[in-house]
Amino acid sequence: MCKHFGVSRTVTREVLTRLHERGLIAKSRASHWIAGPLSAQMLDELHDLRRLMEPLALRRAAKQREHRRLLDMRDRVQAALDAGGQPAPDELDAIETDLHETCVAPQPNQRLAAALPALRLSIVINRQFTRHVARHQEGALLTEHRLVLDHLIAGDADGAAAALRFHLDADHARARERLKVLSVFGGPDGETAPYLTRVV
């Protein structure tokens, strides 16, 4: 890693420690750093936290959002639904970013804002699923997103938070099922970074 990024051992060690703190890598018995695999247990644990924190963050942030922006977000979701509910990967990414990042972004609680990104594992799984599996159907995800946006547009912060929690729970169930499908694919596709060695 030092050679690849052209940094010192101290910096590399610091990076590894931070990744470790976030639960993204772990030490094997042979003292090697191991990345992954994603597990259902990891999804469950992150979801426990996310379903408490993200609706709270949405409620706190609600007042600061521009109405026009929300209507655009809703249009985007509606367009994806009208087109059959199978958005292309980039389009799905944009829809996820709208709700889960932009809508909670004007955030007075900085600790909350800092904690959220690491909890969004199901988005990673949905993205991989969309990329690898031929016929994904996102109708349910889109309708749930639309419901949250409708509450925000109406200025109902509590309703939006409740709808978001419902969406996160449903999305968690889907992500668990999708993770199982992804588990039949071996490792990462394409070339991996030279400092990574495949262990299985």
Partner: peptide, 11 residues
């Protein structure tokens, strides 16, 4: 059945 932790099992 494919268990929820299939990836861990395979590894």
């Amino acid at each position: 059945t494919f268990m929820d932790e299939h990836t861990h099992i395979t590894r």
